[in-house]
Structure formats: structure tokens, C-alpha cells
Design a protein around this nucleic acid. Structure first.
Length: 153
DNA sequence: GCCAACGTTGGC
DNA sequence: GCCAACGTTGGC
């Protein structure tokens, strides 16, 4: 597997169950340049994505998705009624991009933050770096495999 | 609800 | 271009 990823979502907003129901969704609303650059420049169709529930109790990784469409303009930035409207975005200069995700699996158990931190082999996982707030971040394929195994005991 | 960390904004 | 003020994120 080439590059892998992790995305965060608040389950009250859009959970792994919502993704399972929909099977496929567009990942709109990312309004951070670093996260956008990962999506626009590095995400490729077929890449594996860990699905993290933030603001949940407990927060943790709850399943896996896959990139099903590479970056294209996030049209919600152009919609004044949308939550993540950006007056600086335009058709000619969309600024913000999104990808499509498809459902792969929901883990039978949540791999919690606490558990991730206890695993020395996951050292360097960006999710565990202090102060990180990115909603989209890269994951080493070896870390991806370790976490997948933790999710499917 | 707290607060650390970080990004963005805007006056200068 | 600096930097203080402010807003947001997200674990705890």
C-alpha cells in the first residue's frame, strides 16, 4: 500500500455509521491549507483512510474508508448559505478542494486514543503529536496495518 | 468546562 | 511584515 491517511469527523456531524449507510460521500468543508494540500496534491484513488471520531467518548479510530475520487473543487465554499462558505473562493479560483470517500469497514471495536498512545510501535503517528489539529493527515502504511489489526481483534 | 496549541485576522 | 487579539480544535 502506498500513502495512507487519517481523517477526523465528529460523529454527531458525520459518523462511520453515516458513511456505511451512504457507502460513499464527498469530504467537504476542509478549510485548512495544510489539510487541503494533502488532499489536493497527495491523495490518490484507492488510498486507505483511517476514520477517527473526534469529540466522541472515547475518541478513537472506528473504521476504514478508501479514496474513491481524487481532489476536485469544494463547491460548498461558493455557497453563501453553507457552513463553510468562503467569500474569497470563486469558480476560477476555488481555493478549497474535496475528495470522495467510500466505506470499507467499521471495526468491531474502537481503537481509542488512550490505546494508541500506549503502543510504542505507533510512535510518530501524526495523530499523537502534541498540538496537532489537522482534520486530514498522512499515516505510515505500517501504522495503518497495526491499527487495522487492533480494530479487528 | 478547561485550556493548550495553533491558524487567521487586521491594525500599524 | 510584525504581532497581539481572537477564534477554533479537540483531548482531557
Amino acid at each position: 500500500m502506498r500513502q495512507c491517511w487519517l481523517v477526523k469527523s465528529e460523529p454527531d456531524c458525520y459518523s462511520i455509521d453515516d458513511l456505511e449507510r451512504d457507502q460513499r460521500t464527498f469530504w467537504d468543508g476542509v478549510r485548512n491549507y495544510q489539510a487541503r494540500n494533502f488532499m489536493r496534491d497527495q491523495m490518490r484513488a484507492g488510498d486507505g483512510v483511517l476514520y477517527h471520531h473526534s469529540g466522541a467518548d472515547p475518541p478513537g479510530i472506528v473504521g476504514i474508508a478508501r479514496i474513491s475520487r481524487e481532489a476536485y473543487p469544494d463547491h460548498t465554499a461558493l455557497d453563501p448559505k453553507a457552513d463553510h462558505f468562503d467569500p474569497k473562493a470563486s469558480r476560477d479560483n476555488p481555493i478549497w478542494f474535496m475528495v470522495d470517500l467510500e466505506f470499507v469497514e467499521k471495526f468491531p471495536r474502537v481503537v481509542t486514543m488512550k490505546e494508541l498512545k500506549e503502543r510504542p510501535e505507533l510512535e510518530g503517528l501524526p495523530l499523537l503529536q502534541r498540538g496537532q489539529r489537522l482534520s486530514v493527515m498522512p499515516v505510515d502504511p505500517r501504522h495503518f496495518e497495526i491499527i487495522r489489526r487492533l480494530g479487528r481483534p
